[in-house]
Design a protein around this nucleic acid. Structure first.
Lengths: 211, 211
DNA sequence: GAGGAAAACCTAATGGTCGTAGGGAAGTCA
DNA sequence: TGACTTCCCTACGACCATTAGGTTTTCCTC
């Protein structure tokens, strides 16, 4: 009773914040990630531009919130895809979920994996879920090592860097050269299983010398 | 005699154009590729901003000229590296030259391989040298196929897409996560020979089934 | 319900951006 | 010298992010 008002107000506030982020994403989809305009957001929201400063201290703060949102979403999408699945399938399903999410959220993907917004660097808080994702990846690779499906070296720094490079490469090419494609039909996206396969071959457990 | 004046003038003009491009690159290096400001360029050049429109019809035209310049440079850097070298080394040397150029020209690399400038799409003219580069790559892969060092499939559309994805991936990760590194010391860059090796393994000529 | 605090929103203004219009000065050629 | 082109300028319009400071609305307490 005594807190209903406060709840009500802060709820409404959160609603507005979400709305700002939604509108921002929509605008970036049509105008480009770096072309986000606070005035345009305010216009769509029926507010005057300075009013947005009630919710975000600057334009970069909006990018930061979007970064965090994206990092959380892509992390959770992978976790959801891996939940309740046999261990030896988890890595592949995670990659698939990752790829699909990226294609369906290209704006956020660009923000997350290419750092091209002048002056923007994610805050530690916004970056935390991205670290989670990397930790998840490491633990799943470790599972594969423990299960005898990957060589020990796969979880080394080089192994991880290679893994992320392979996936980021396919993603990067798809976004830059054929962004309008869907996840299913992307010319580059369909290479995702291929590079995963190549990774497994490189870190074959039996004769897994890394040169 | 009669044309000295004209030559003189057009030479001076070309000089100014080059100067504008040089200043633009320098500014983008410190401020970010998307943060290029015509006013700032004019300031450094000792001109008023509108005067730049004598040399470029718009800001995007500057990006276009830079795109072309970058595409030419990276193509020629690779060609130079491969000139007069045994065939079986050309591909690797080309990749090395490519990687080095990209690390030393990150601004242009970003413009070439990530398309993140709102509203910018390279003109066919600016894109031409990039097509050359891809044609070069194709012919060198074909050489490797003919020399019995790669399977026929390596020059298929998938093979090419895979090749560019592998290299773009390493590059992408390096630029996004460790841009201040040099070519020699980059955590991801040193994976370039690794992914090249993986490519050769995937398209081994003897038992080269592509699954 | 009335009073007061806090939140939400506003207008006005600063200083920056790109790009256009139109005019003057300098260089070039007959 | 006179005509023509190129170069550069000032002035302007339309946008942008952000700050300052005032007003209205909303909500809680009394």
């Amino acid at each position: 009773m005594s807190t209903t008002g406060l709840d009500r107000r802060s709820k409404r506030r959160q609603q507005t914040i979400d709305e700002i982020l939604d509108i921002s994403i929509a605008l970036m989809e049509t105008e480009g990630v770096a072309a986000l305009s606070l005035s345009a957001v305010a216009r769509q929201l029926g507010l005057q531009p300075p009013s947005l400063y009630q919710y975000f201290p600057s334009k970069l703060a909006i990018y930061d919130a979007l970064f965090q949102r994206g990092a959380e979403q892509v992390r959770d999408a992978q976790r959801a895809a891996r939940a309740g699945v046999p261990i030896e399938q988890q890595l592949e399903l995670g990659i698939t979920a990752f790829s699909r999410w990226c294609m369906e959220n290209q704006v956020l993907t660009q923000l997350l994996f290419w750092r091209t917004i002048p002056g923007f660097e994610p805050s530690p808080e916004a970056f935390a879920p991205a670290v989670d994702g990397l930790t998840d990846l490491k633990s799943y690779l470790q599972q594969e090592v423990d299960g005898g499906r990957l060589h020990q070296e796969a979880v080394s720094d080089d192994g991880l860097a290679l893994f992320t490079s392979l996936t980021a490469g396919v993603l990067s090419q798809q976004l830059a050269n054929e962004p309008q494609a869907t996840f299913e039909r992307g010319r580059f996206m369909k290479l995702m299983p291929v590079v995963l396969d190549m990774f497994y071959q490189r870190y074959e457990p039996t004769r897994g010398k890394t040169k």
